[in-house]
Amino acid sequence: MIDFIMIKPVNLLQCLFIFLGIFGTLLLWGQKRLQGVAALLLYYSVLMLLNLLEELNITKPLFFITPALTLLLGPILYFMSRQMVGFYFQANWRVICHIVPTLMALPFTHHTQVVIAIATISQLIYIYQSEKLLNKFNWSIFNTRSDAENLQLCWLNYTLMMLAFIFIIDLVRLNVRSLTSEVVYYHWYFIDLALIFCILCFMVLRLSRQSQLNGQAEPPAISDTVHLHKTLEELNNSELAQKLFDEIHQAVMADSLYLQAKLSVNDICARTQIKTKDISWAINTATNKNFNDYVNELRVKEVQKQLSARRSSQYTLLDIAFNAGFNSKSAFNSAFKRFTNMTPSAYAKLHTRGE
């Protein structure tokens, strides 16, 4: 009876999962693009609650379903990624198909190793598909937005890869249980859970701080930006690309469009009447740069111009950067160093000495 009520450190960690799941769901569910993340947190909250009840022998004698529930994790990660890039959830027969394996596994949950092995393979497949989708989205962002650094989801790519690594390690843990002591097995399990908990906390903090992502009503449509205009692509005409780019560049410079913090290809399209697909194609072909790099290079030159014009004494370096169109210190520092091979502060000091 004493063992029945004994609480272990891993059980306390499971309680933290439950709290994080409830808190994160309440925090993120109201934002349409983040509902997939909220669903992931809710999933872990329910899973850890069932794990806790099973390990305390409260529900295990009656039912044992957590191995089957691991088959839901892959689809949830994939739908979370789709939601983040703007393919919003719609209940239909295809969604139900993703749930069927979980239902089919329920009668076989006592074959824990087999079920979790199948679930791990499923998770890796779904993560691979999610990575492909996120890569397309990031490519699209950097070719259509000048504030891509604040909207990109590269961090989510890395997060999913870390989860995939943990899932594989956890599968190894289950299959070597007979070869390890209970102490090693227990600590291994605790470390796996702790790593996943840290990743979920990171996701909640990252999304709560990424205000540009949260505030953007609709993400750019991948289908409109990833595939370039067929006529131009088939022509592969560098002269035509240069002609279009010259027109684009002239419009950007004439109206100083690069000073707009959230400049996109749609803004240039409205100014030049050139299709957004053709704008991306022309810039890529004529400059070997994506749209984001093209605009940021103009902004860096504007900062250099302001410093050279001796107007910097009344403004801080960050003020000059913001006036040039940058909307974050990290984006400014990264772009400036990439195009000048110097940090902004080092360049400013060198400029001051030169005077």
Rank of each mutant, 00 (worst) to 15 (best):
N290R: 02
A309R: 14
N296F: 00
A346F: 10
Y294G: 03
S308L: 13
E302G: 02
Q306H: 10
S345T: 15
D319W: 06
R299W: 00
M342N: 13
V303L: 03
S312K: 12
Q306N: 10
S334E: 12
S308Y: 12
R311S: 14
A309I: 09
S308M: 13
F339M: 03
V295K: 01
A309F: 08
S345A: 14
L318M: 10
Q314P: 06
V300A: 04
A335W: 03
K305W: 06
N333M: 08
S308P: 01
N290A: 00
H351E: 13
N292Y: 12
Y347M: 04
R353D: 01
N341F: 08
K301G: 05
A348C: 12
E297I: 01
K305N: 15
S308V: 10
S345D: 11
A321L: 05
A321Q: 07
T340H: 04
A321I: 07
F322Q: 13
N341G: 06
D319V: 05
R353A: 09
Y315Q: 15
A346R: 15
K337I: 07
R353P: 00
F339D: 03
N327C: 12
R310F: 10
K305Y: 08
Y294D: 01
S313A: 14
F332S: 05
T343P: 07
V295C: 03
K329I: 08
Y294I: 01
R310H: 14
H351W: 10
S345N: 12
F326N: 02
Y294M: 01
A348M: 10
A335L: 01
M342G: 04
K349Q: 14
F336D: 05
G354A: 14
T316N: 09
Q314V: 14
L318W: 07
N323H: 08
P344F: 06
S345L: 15
M342I: 08
T316E: 06
N290V: 01
R310P: 02
A348G: 04
I320V: 11
N323T: 03
T316D: 12
N341V: 02
A348W: 11
Y347F: 15
R338K: 14
Q306A: 12
F322H: 09
S330N: 11
K337M: 09
V303A: 03
Q304L: 05
A331F: 02
Q314I: 13
R311G: 14
D319T: 15
N333S: 13
N341E: 09
N296C: 07
S334G: 03
F322V: 15
P344E: 09
R311W: 13
